[in-house]
């Protein structure tokens, strides 16, 4: 499955304000054959170094000195939409994680994950896959439930298909993509696509919201 071995090593940037962690993650990534093209200790450094380093994957701690992880996610993806952001968080601050995903992050991992899990997550995120924890799936599911609440009368809320909801629910229950594929008689790739679609809808909605907000504030007239 891994086709990156014969290609160029994946370029990664590590953003974390804890030197211990930054070094540990950098060491692990280098040992795993990745090319760590830049590190940053805060949001300002991350945004400043991103354009020159052009990483494919940004491994990002959410709790960093300003601008925070959510803003950094939005900023780097605005610069280079083909880049991928993997959130590596210690505190599990739920709302922050959801905001980062809305801003375009496609992976989330808690820091207690093992080295193999981290390397695997970076590889998968670089391939364009999504890396979910059950907790994040629960948050996304809750967000869609809120958006589809009839009392929040909006016309263009994103809706999940029945299949997407089913898949997301299984992820939230801790099932792996393979288990879900077996249970639903789908291919691994199809399950992966369903999960990606849910994230895409959430990000699209976020963009629509931001645009509407900007128009309401009169920012489009400049």
């Amino acid at each position: 499955m891994d086709s990156d071995t014969d290609q160029q090593p994946i370029r990664v940037m590590v953003v974390d304000d804890h030197p211990m962690w930054r070094d540990a993650v950098e060491r692990d990534l280098q040992a795993g054959g990745f090319d760590v093209v830049a590190v940053a200790a805060n949001g300002a450094e991350a945004v400043a170094r991103f354009p020159a380093a052009r990483p494919q994957v940004v491994v990002l701690d959410l709790q960093i000195p300003a601008p925070n992880g959510v803003e950094v996610t939005a900023e780097v993806l605005r610069h280079d939409p083909s880049a991928r952001v993997l959130i590596l968080s210690a505190s599990g601050e739920q709302t922050d994680v959801l905001e980062a995903v809305k801003a375009g992050a496609t992976g989330y991992l808690v820091k207690s994950a093992s080295r193999e899990e981290l390397l695997d997550a970076v590889r998968r995120v670089a391939r364009g896959d999504t890396v979910f924890t059950p907790g994040l799936a629960g948050l996304v599911l809750g967000e869609f439930r809120r958006l589809s609440d009839p009392s929040a009368a909006e016309v263009d809320q994103p809706q999940l298909t029945e299949r997407e909801t089913e898949v997301l629910k299984m992820v939230a229950k801790g099932m792996s993509y393979k288990q879900i594929a077996d249970r639903l008689f789908l291919s691994h790739r199809t399950v992966q696509n369903h999960v990606q679609n849910t994230l895409r809808k959430l990000q699209m909605h976020n963009r629509v919201e931001l645009t509407r907000w900007a128009i309401e504030q009169g920012l489009d007239e400049e």
Partner: peptide, 8 residues
Amino acid sequence: VSVATPGT
């Protein structure tokens, strides 16, 4: 044990 909630 892993617990997933809606976040609200």
